[in-house]
């Protein structure tokens, strides 16, 4: 279900360096994608990944476990989870490629394939706020308001689904460069 409650896009565009961090972040590319402030969730995703990746080796990313605790199966599932290396998406930074996969499905299911329009529906950034917290708060609010998008049965917060779609579309646009 797509329930596009209009987000507040009237807040001033932030150009603060604190709002967009990350070694592979390209402000120019982000600004090309849309207003920098509206990218909060997308950037939050990228920064979040980078933060986690810095703190842990890939082998420590929590594996998905099975009901029996069978070692072989746990290892298999864990491997599926942990061997996915982050890739760089121009304008976004490093992201888990499975988000790109999911974002492609979001685009296919919703037909929403215009980055600018998608960004217009994403939350605006607040200066000095933590991108991850901002993203989590927006996701929580979406679920509380039943503002969800259903992808292959998965009930996703509209904002996170659209953020994944933006990432997938950005990757598609920048396929010749770093993605």
């Amino acid at each position: 279900m797509v329930n596009a409650d209009a987000p507040d896009t009237s807040a001033p565009v932030s150009d603060s360096p604190t709002a967009v961090e990350g070694p592979d972040f390209s402000r120019r590319q982000v600004l090309r994608l849309g207003s920098g402030g509206a990218l909060a969730l997308v950037i939050g995703a990228g920064v979040g990944w980078l933060d986690r990746s810095r703190n842990r080796g890939p082998e420590s990313v929590s594996p998905l476990r099975d009901t029996t605790g069978a070692t072989t199966t746990s290892t298999t599932v864990g491997t599926t989870t942990t061997t996915t290396e982050p890739i760089t998406v121009s304008g976004i930074g490093e992201v888990d490629p499975r988000i790109i996969t999911l974002g492609q499905r979001v685009v296919e299911v919703t037909g929403e394939n215009d980055i600018a329009e998608l960004l217009a529906q994403l939350p605006t950034a607040e200066r000095d706020s933590d991108p991850l917290e901002r993203a989590a708060a927006r996701v929580r609010a979406d679920f509380e308001q039943s503002d969800t998008i259903t992808v292959d049965g998965w009930i996703l917060a509209a904002s996170e689904a659209r953020a994944a779609a933006v990432i997938a579309l950005a990757c598609s646009e920048s396929v010749q460069s770093t993605c």
Binding site: L41, G44, A45, G46, G48, W49, R52, L64, T81, T84, V95, D96, R98, I99, L102, L132, A135, A136, V139, R140, L156, A157, S159, E160, A163, A164
Partner: peptide, 8 residues
């Protein structure tokens, strides 16, 4: 799961 790790 990957999406959830990024947004929550």
């Amino acid at each position: 799961g990957a999406l959830m790790a990024h947004t929550g």
